[in-house]
Design a protein around this nucleic acid. Structure first.
Length: 154
DNA sequence: CGGATTTGACCCGCGC
DNA sequence: GCGCGGGTCAAATCCG
């Protein structure tokens, strides 16, 4: 089952620690029902730490499009949707469904101009693209970057 | 049956 | 503390 998946990163000292804990959580959450809450918070803590350490890639761009789900060649699993303030459209949250790759992205329509779709990528893929899509190549040529790649390394 | 979505609950950080 | 805003979980549901 993939509810608590084992997270594997490319070799790096800090990340192997994180994946180890994740594995423990994955195992014991099956067995001990009592401690589930503890494990959950524990897992979240780790996720947060991980996020703080590894959230090094954020990549935002806008496009003019009628469709909000643009195919970028990766496989995404939706995990949430939220209405945000001052925006009549809701923002949707996706995660890369590749095993162990926890790249996230958010998609929302611009509050002022509903023609514009804002896409936010968070993180780096730990694997190559599964399929090449020409449509995204086209988008890459046309989109409007207003906030590109930056590092949050201390 | 197995993976993706839906959707309200839950959680957490922050400002008051 | 408390409420609010935003991000995430996870059970139910959908769909191939």
């Amino acid at each position: 089952m993939a509810k608590h998946e084992l997270v594997l990163f490319p070799s790096s000292s800090t990340s192997s620690y994180a994946s180890e804990i994740d594995f423990k959580v994955a195992q014991s959450s099956k067995v001990h029902f009592k401690t589930e809450g503890f494990l959950r918070t524990q897992k979240k803590k780790i996720a947060r730490q991980k996020g703080r350490k590894m959230e090094q890639h954020r990549y935002v761009f806008e496009t003019w499009s009628q469709i909000d789900i643009l195919d970028d060649g990766y496989k995404w699993r939706k995990y949430g949707e939220k209405r945000v303030k001052n925006n009549k459209f809701s923002r949707s949250y996706y995660r890369c469904s590749y095993q162990g790759c926890n790249v996230k992205k958010q998609i929302q329509r611009h509050s002022k101009d509903e023609q514009i779709v804002v896409t936010t990528y968070d993180g780096m893929h730990t694997h190559p693209v599964e399929k090449f899509t020409e449509s995204f190549e086209q988008i890459l040529r046309n989109f409007n970057i207003y906030n590109n790649f930056y590092n949050v390394q201390r």
